[in-house]
Every structure is written in C-alpha cells, then in structure tokens.
Design a protein around this nucleic acid. Sequence first.
DNA 1: GTTAGCATGTAAGGAGTTACATGATTTT
DNA 2: AAAATCATGTAACTCCTTACATGCTAAC
Lengths: 200, 200
Amino acid sequence: MARRGETIELAVLGLLHEGPMHGYELRKRLNLMLGWGRLLSYGSLYPALKKMLRGSLIAEVAPDQVPGVASRRQRIVYQLTDKGAAEFERLMSEVGPTAWEDDNFDIRFRFFSSTDMEIRLRVLEGRRSRLQERLDRVQRELAMTQKEVDRYAAELQRHGVESVEREVRWLSDLINAERGARTDTPPPPPSPAPSPAGND
Amino acid sequence: MARRGETIELAVLGLLHEGPMHGYELRKRLNLMLGWGRLLSYGSLYPALKKMLRGSLIAEVAPDQVPGVASRRQRIVYQLTDKGAAEFERLMSEVGPTAWEDDNFDIRFRFFSSTDMEIRLRVLEGRRSRLQERLDRVQRELAMTQKEVDRYAAELQRHGVESVEREVRWLSDLINAERGARTDTPPPPPSPAPSPAGND
DNA sequence: GTTAGCATGTAAGGAGTTACATGATTTT
DNA sequence: AAAATCATGTAACTCCTTACATGCTAAC
C-alpha cells in the first residue's frame, strides 16, 4: 500500500531505537504493529536489513556478550549506529505528505514519543486534513454521479465514509490532547475548520 | 495489500457489466470505489485493459454509433464480451481466502447484486472470521508481550482493535440482514435506510 | 491563442510476495 | 527421533507507480 521504500526502513530504525534485536523478532513486531492487513515477508525484510547494513544505518552486535552461553549462535542481532539514529530523527521530523500516508502515518505515530510536540501536531493535522479532503472529494463526486445507486454500492460508500469520519474524530481528539498538554492554558474552543497543511 | 492481479480485472469486469465505458471514466469510478487510500494510475489501468482485450474478456465498441457526431473520436469505449461476463461470474462465485482480502472483498461487495445470497453469505462470513482471527491473534500476542507499553503504541493498538471490532459488527449486521431476507419472512422493518447498522 | 482538462499510452524501476533452500534448537 | 518452531537467506516474479510522451477538445 505504501509506496515509499522508507516505510520498512523507518519501522526498523524505530524498533532498534528501543533496543537491539534480530531479524526474526523484528518481523514479529512489525507484523503486530502494522498487522492490520499485511504480513511482512522475509523476502522483503532481510534484503532491507542488508541494505541498511551497507548504508551503515545499523550494525551487527558483537556475538559473545555472555561468555557462559557460548554456543547459541546463529541469529544476528542488530543495533542502531549513530548514523542510523540520526537518520531516524531526520525521517521522524518530516511533516510533508509522505508522513500522512496510511502506513507511514501509523509508523510515525507508533514512535511519536521520540518527537517534539510541534512535529506531532503538524503530522496529526496533516493527516486529518488529508482525510477531510478525501471525504469532501468523495461526497462532491457522489452528489454529481448519483443516479440509480446499487444497494450494496451505497452501503459500501456509507461504511467507508463513516470509517473515515471516525478516524477524523480520533485525530481531532488527539490534536486536542496535544494542545491541552502544550501549555497549562485550558483548551480553547476547538476549531472545526480543517487547517490547511504546511509541507516539508 | 492486495496481491492478486485479479483485483483490477474484477473491478473492470464489474463496472463494464453495468455498461460500456472508456478507460478514463473507468479510472475515475475505480478511484471513487476503492479510493480509500489508493489512486489507480494509468500506468496500471491501460496495460490491464490491453491484457483483457488480448484475452477477449472485453472488446472495443464500434466507434460510429451516432453518425451525426462524427468526429469526437479518440476515446476507446469497452464492453464486456460473453467470455468476460462468464469470467466475471466465475470470479464472483469464488468464496475462498482471496475473496476475503481487503481490496478483493470491497470489490466483491460492490457487485454483490450480481450474486446469489448463498455466495454473499459465504463471503461475508469468511471475511468476518478472518477479521476475528486477526483480532484474537493480536490480543493474544498483546497479552504476552505487554511489559512497558509506550503511550502512543498503546493508543495505536487500541484504535486498531476498535476499528476491526467495528467492522466485525458491520459484517454481522449484514449477515443478519441477508439471513433475515432468506426466508419468506416479509421484511419486518420498513426499508428507508438499508442500514441495519447498530454502530458505535 | 493559450491554458486546462480529457484521453491514451509506454518505459523504467521500486517494493514486496511466493517459493525455494538451509540449518539450528526446542519440544514432544 | 520426530515435529515444531526459530532463524536466515535468495531468485523469480507480479503488481503497481512515476515520469514521460502525445494529441484532442473546451473554455477563457
């Protein structure tokens, strides 16, 4: 779904940011994390790790940490390099369109704790106005095209619109929560107008 | 997400099943139909049409329907062939896993009017149990892995679970509606809104 | 007459899946 | 000892996107 090749990379950087891990474990967490539909295959994870290794974003951890448990070696534990950590921060502070895409947004949100609130707000607002645009566009076109509507087609539209509206409300709540936490100022009346988005 | 190459093909067959259309129009409808996230590009639509043309699933409509409006020609209107109609029916009566995938499910649902209720029920139930499995798996793993949970990670999980639960309820309502219509039982509630949706 | 939108296509390449291939370790 | 699961990897392939390229038609 997400076309940016950075998607897996960002997720891996984020997970390794929380601690060293080997590929198999990484994959399990990744599937749990964005598991709402897609399962990541080894055929895409391992090549991605190799690539990041070549780019020095990650490095293999020295194998013999605990001398007592000598043998148990065939899994490769990776950790973030300084360069990798810097790249993670660079990617996490992007606030442009790529940060609003479905998968990219989820991953960024998952690692929001590693970002400033300003970034968080920009990303949340960007995502919200993107969804709002989708909604408006669909509803506009629906008004034009609607002649005889198939029952199931209509039900699908209805459910889709409702789901997106629900996510918009979710985002609005999150935005309010962030704003409320920003200062001790009591949260001002919510602005229903979707703010036009800034870009990177 | 959807890996099956049949996805676009089925959607095109379904739309042409409702009437002849040219590529540009097809694309607009497709984007409206499964527009919740992805936009279909020409680079994928036109090659697909060519392929279907080669396979004789569709054919070009004779260009000169209305003699008076001679010129206005450069768009290519396609229509379903008999073979295409048969293929559409074959695909629509599949009830296996491929029919439960996100995109494939949406497309099948969109064209449910062209199917028997038995098929509809199988597809709806298949999709529901697939979502239920996802839910169970995630909740099981969540119970094991949960140690220190990041605030945003937890919120993302919560929202994800809730969304899927919501879709399960939606499917359940639809299944009940189908079952209710199965017997000769006269439709008890009036049908101003076909929404049996008891949501939220 | 020039911009904007309609309409069709192609080439190159990215991203990820499937299927294959291998072996170690733990559980039964 | 077998089966399950952990663990890593590769090759071929599919699907789709991006960017490019072209020309017609409507509106301003």
